[in-house]
Design a binder for these strands. Sequence first.
DNA 1: TTAAAGACTGACTGATCACTCTATAAAAAT
DNA 2: ATTTTTATAGAGTGATCAGTCAGTCTTTAA
Lengths: 188, 188
Amino acid sequence: MDKEKEILAAALKLFVEFGFHGTPTSKIAKEAGVANGTLFHYFNTKEDLIVALYNGIKENLNYYLLSKVKDEDALEMRMKTIYSESLYWALIHRDEFFFIQQFNFSPHVSKVSEEDKEKQTRLYACLLMEGINNDMFKSLSVDLIATLLGSHLYGVHKYLVSNDLSSTKQQEIIDETFVLIWQMITKN
Amino acid sequence: MDKEKEILAAALKLFVEFGFHGTPTSKIAKEAGVANGTLFHYFNTKEDLIVALYNGIKENLNYYLLSKVKDEDALEMRMKTIYSESLYWALIHRDEFFFIQQFNFSPHVSKVSEEDKEKQTRLYACLLMEGINNDMFKSLSVDLIATLLGSHLYGVHKYLVSNDLSSTKQQEIIDETFVLIWQMITKN
DNA sequence: TTAAAGACTGACTGATCACTCTATAAAAAT
DNA sequence: ATTTTTATAGAGTGATCAGTCAGTCTTTAA
């Protein structure tokens, strides 16, 4: 048993249930089955732990998406892959996805290094630039397109988790909503 | 000087800057220029204060929107009014809007009563039902349409605040993005 | 004018929490 | 075999903070 991973897993579970403030480091240690001091051996501060957890989750998501996109596909297909797989991943890893959102609206966001931030957005940035270069998008700023895509995805995710649907129905909605957002941002 | 309002104003300012956890009640009291105990005279707990602040802000927003929509307008126009005015309001009341988002991703959301929640969404619910009844929308579930509208609005807001634009440019983007979302959800 | 109610104060408290410290055991390096 | 480094433990600590309390001031009402 890798204690560092135990700590991260326990922290994720508790943060999602009780929030950052609502989960003391002592409870994290207990849940992870390690001593109080061990937590601080691996992470200097509680905040370090939070940020490390965030970066780790983002890395996992990124790695997963990278494994799914096929470089030989057309841009639309690659975009659809990213979109759909992000949603599938989010549905399977509910705690992780909820944690990401929680983190993004917390004061801890500012503690993510520029380097890590760049890593975490590179994939999207590349695809978007490709679309711009190929003149596929409506004349909107890149940032606006990116934000619109992101918030659409969050919205669909929110809908999917708050309604208990069969996986075929989920699939259907994911496909349907991709068409909607794709039509919104591309020229016709 | 109304002490209760002073406390709410101070709390808003500090919560936005330092987060819920990062602002002790003692600092709120000091910022408001009242004694520590006075805060607890008006609000039984810190959480009560937070929820009261949220409900108050939501009420203000709702009141503002209600004052802007003209009942005689066509549905599309009324929708556009709600959309645009929400964004204008959010741009003027930045702290308030940020607080709403912060609150929505916090464990405190669950403390809003069903009654208050209903009040806060009635306006949107009515307009949406009207659209459904008039068969204007694509065959998507009401909840999905509502979520899509909401997240689109959040996305555009995020873009507007993170880019420093002239007010004519802002106006332009608000108009433009309303067309986009309207096309997304309505039949053609 | 006086009594009651409500507003307001700020020192205080009990609990909690992030983090430290000392100690020991295990593993790695020499 | 011995030293050094790393992992782990858990009791302890100082600070912080939400909420209390006992009492004063202010307003209202009789």
